[in-house]
């Protein structure tokens, strides 16, 4: 069990790996979730009651947090839109015979 075995085995697996080609882009998930959360929390901020404001030291914390989350979500979606992943070549289905 030498270094070369591990090295060769992993190199061979790397050539068959499907992650690069098939894994979705996490920016879409972060962007999507934070836009949804941002909208929900911002709405809670717009409709905040006096009790809510008093509890949070007079700060409309839902509004500010919601807007912040919305901005982060939009940032990730914008980044995704401007710099989409370059599609890696799909690896061959059959391993090449060595």
């Amino acid at each position: 069990m030498s270094e070369h075995n591990v090295h060769r085995e992993v190199t061979e697996l790397e050539s068959k790996s499907a992650t690069a080609a098939r894994l979705f882009d996490v920016r879409r998930i972060i962007g999507g979730l934070f836009v949804v959360y941002g909208v929900i929390v911002t709405l809670a901020g717009i409709t905040a009651s006096d009790a809510d404001l008093d509890k949070a030291e007079g700060v409309n914390i839902n509004l500010w947090t919601g807007l912040g989350m919305l901005a982060l979500g939009v940032f990730f979606l914008g980044w995704l839109w401007l710099r989409p992943l370059k599609q890696a070549p799909v690896p061959p289905e059959e391993p090449t015979v060595e």
Binding site: V10, L13, K16, S17, A18, T19, A20, R22, L23, F24
Partner: peptide, 17 residues
């Protein structure tokens, strides 16, 4: 993410990618 798992390297190390 399930469809990206083809080899053990994908499952354990995200295909080093």
């Amino acid at each position: 993410a399930r469809r990206s798992v083809k080899t053990s390297l994908d499952f354990f190390l995200s295909g080093r990618s």
